[in-house]
Design a protein around this nucleic acid. Structure first.
Length: 504
DNA sequence: TATGAAACTTAGCACTCTCTAA
DNA sequence: TTAGAGAGTGCTAAGTTTCATA
């Protein structure tokens, strides 16, 4: 209960005002009637002290702990899957605590209860070594279902949803699924022209549902919007995707900033990340949007005749495996490919500038998919320090050039070996400094452009890794520059498969 | 056709670890 | 040696899609 109150206090400190006390007994409830009158300072400082102690551990202690952790991973972090030893993704259960949720979540502050063995379902083969529950406990169920990939499941009490323990992305099942996903997206590449023709035609359909479907598809394709399932009111934060857009989420401008037919989007998407975009659209799309919003209020559905289910059913009839989210994968990957083609300078041998091009291509995708992040702490100070460094380097170069000049004239007047060497040395120094300057400038540009953009999500989930692998091979960029160890493990299938001729 | 559960992918944040430069 | 930045990792919420059932 102490931990519970500490967390509640933390919520309060962060100006969150919803909480509930589900863990108090009768007596506690009668004693504690107003949390505002409770003083958690001692509890708080207790945990702060614990945290300080942890930070102050000696090297040996840290080593010791690391070893113990590795042993734990060794014992519980792997499973046997069809005779292969596979890494498990999340083998530690979620601890009890207060549910936060993202954005303005109605269930924020509810108690997430401790999971006990009686909540746990184990899924493994019949003839395998079935894990034993802790003494005095029983599993909820042990089943042997090879049609699913999870090893353990339980029901989380706040949202009443199933949670699973599954394999790590480096595992074979996950890798094969990933590969399959990109194959579907590649398949879309050959069908997309036809599909686009279809929805262009459908923009003028007599049937309202078809028109709405066409406009929704236009958004999903052009803007990489998510499908947008309906959500139960009051169960989660108010966020939307394409099909669940409401009239209040768009503004229609016949003319804006010298352009025609502008749609201004402003809504909260997944994780309550704001999507704000002013987009010029086709005249017919604009006309349709005017039509769809006629006689409606802000909270009314924009696409009242459409939902993700009917949309996906239609898409599946156009191509095997096609769903709304395939467009995101396809458009992300094709954007990376096109941007790489456009931004890579084959004559520039410098690996750092190649990587800048790659990151920029990656960034174009992140912008398309609206993958944002909070700007890093002290960002402007960091930027300032970097710029100072650049200026200093520029001064150093000026100085070094001056020195080179005088070394050169020295050598002219005295053609000795020593003078020649001195001159050569100075020249080398200038070159070295100039290279360092370029590297610094590249770093600064990259950092500035990346201020509020998260590259990781698209790299991990939307970009066909074979495009990256092939690009690296083509331009002799070591794959380590694009993918770290974990990413190389996840994309092992792609790295093994592809040479520089791969075409998405 | 609607509804809800199940199973899976996608998402950003906070933390820790590691590297670098002063 | 140390602080600070950046890279890497863990965590778990929040989506999408599929499937079963009414």
């Amino acid at each position: 209960i102490v931990e519970h109150f500490v967390t509640i206090q933390l919520f309060r400190l962060k100006k969150f005002n919803k909480w509930e006390v589900q863990v108090m007994n009768k007596q506690e409830r009668s004693t504690i009637t107003d949390l505002g009158k409770c003083n958690f300072r001692d509890v708080c400082s207790y945990f702060q002290q614990k945290s300080e102690e942890r930070k102050a551990r000696s090297k040996e202690e840290k080593q010791e702990e690391k070893k113990k952790n590795e042993a734990l991973i060794e014992e519980f972090g792997f499973c046997d899957w069809d005779g292969h030893r596979e890494k498990i993704g999340n083998f530690r259960l979620e601890p009890p605590g207060l549910f936060r949720g993202r954005g303005n979540h109605p269930k924020m502050g509810k108690l997430k209860k401790r999971i006990i063995p009686e909540n746990i379902t184990i899924n493994c083969s019949k003839n395998s070594k079935i894990p034993k529950p802790p003494a005095g406990h029983k599993w909820k169920e042990v089943r042997h279902d090879n049609a699913v990939t999870w090893l353990v499941s339980w029901t989380e009490n706040v949202q009443n949803q199933n949670k699973y323990i599954m394999l790590n992305p480096s595992s074979r099942v996950k890798g094969e699924k990933d590969w399959q996903k990109y194959e579907v997206a590649r398949n879309l590449k050959s069908k997309v022209d036809r599909i686009r023709e279809d929805y262009m035609r459908d923009l003028k359909s007599d049937e309202m549902m078809v028109r709405q479907r066409a406009v929704a598809l236009y958004f999903i394709d052009k803007l990489a919007l998510r499908a947008g399932n309906e959500k139960e009111d009051g169960e989660s934060a108010d966020t939307v995707g394409c099909c669940s857009l409401r009239c209040e989420h768009i503004k229609l401008h016949k003319h804006l900033d010298g352009k025609d037919f502008i749609v201004e989007f402003d809504f909260l998407g997944k994780d309550s990340i704001r999507y704000y975009n002013k987009v010029p659209v086709l005249k017919q799309v604009f006309k349709n949007l005017v039509l769809f919003t006629e006689n409606k209020e802000g909270p009314d559905d924009l696409f009242d005749r459409l939902n993700t289910s009917t949309l996906n059913k239609y898409l599946n009839s156009l191509m095997d495996g096609l769903t709304a989210k395939v467009f995101r994968t396809y458009n992300a990957s094709i954007t990376l490919l096109n941007q790489l083609l456009e931004l890579t300078d084959p004559d520039d041998e410098n690996v750092a500038s190649k990587i800048l091009s790659y990151n920029r291509a990656n960034r174009a995708v992140a912008v398309l998919c609206n993958h944002q992040r909070a700007a890093p702490k002290n960002f402007s100070e960091q930027m300032g320090r970097m710029n100072e460094k650049i200026e200093k380097k520029q001064r150093d170069i000026q100085d070094a050039k001056q020195e080179t000049k005088s070394a050169k004239s020295d050598y002219k007047h005295n053609k000795s070996e020593a003078k020649r060497k001195a001159y050569e040395g100075k020249k080398k120094k200038v070159e070295r400094l100039q290279e360092q300057l370029i590297k610094l400038e590249v770093q600064a540009t990259d950092k500035e452009e990346n201020k509020e953009i998260a590259l990781g999500t698209s790299k991990l989930n939307y970009l066909d890794p074979r495009i990256t692998v092939a690009w690296c091979k083509k331009y002799s960029v070591p794959i380590e520059k694009c993918y770290n160890k974990t990413q190389r493990d996840k994309f092992a299938w792609a790295i093994a498969m592809v040479d520089d001729t791969y075409v998405f």
